[in-house]
Design a protein around this nucleic acid. Sequence first.
DNA 1: TTGACAGGCAAGTCAATGCTTGCCTGTTGT
DNA 2: ACAACAGGCAAGCATTGACTTGCCTGTCAA
Lengths: 94, 94
Amino acid sequence: MGDVFRALADPTRRAILDEQTDRDDQTLFELCSRLAARHRVASSRQAVSQHIDVLVDAGLVKTRRDGRYKFRHVDPRPLERIADRWLQRRKEGP
Amino acid sequence: MGDVFRALADPTRRAILDEQTDRDDQTLFELCSRLAARHRVASSRQAVSQHIDVLVDAGLVKTRRDGRYKFRHVDPRPLERIADRWLQRRKEGP
DNA sequence: TTGACAGGCAAGTCAATGCTTGCCTGTTGT
DNA sequence: ACAACAGGCAAGCATTGACTTGCCTGTCAA
């Protein structure tokens, strides 16, 4: 579970999540070019690939193979319990 | 805003948030002993102090001076918008 | 079949960061 | 006043982690 927090710590990985949330099922090359164009991320293909490994390990990204392509999409479920962890003392009522 | 994610990336800092959420307004020494006793965190006083600096910079912890004591309490507001960032494609309806 | 393409693996480099050590400032109680 | 206590500052060390480089595997189209 700590993997989720570590995965979110890097701004490039957050940009990857942003981009993949905006456009699902991108290939690695497509993701790289869109990261460069729309998020000012100038990382190499290998760097992006390694970031995605971290996101996959954290359970935030799922992959699907199709021939020589590999598609990735965001799984936001691990995020849903993050904020709740320290909101126990929230004021009751609306 | 990226400071919040970076602050949450370290397990010791998450333990500090846990402990401070459980018992508000602790001094540094009190926090250290409780971290050791209840969270198996064996960090020195200076290490804990530096972690708290990171949490303060992220806006997750507020401090209040009272004489030679300094009390700290969690401000969970920066966390409330974290999860929402990547939940845009959530299924609609309940 | 073979060359081009999508992606993966592994070692090495370099900067960020968690932690320690030693010393200093300010406050309180006797 | 002064000793004990709560906390802060700064330099140094060691680990983590992001990124690059070079090469390899597997797939598709001409």
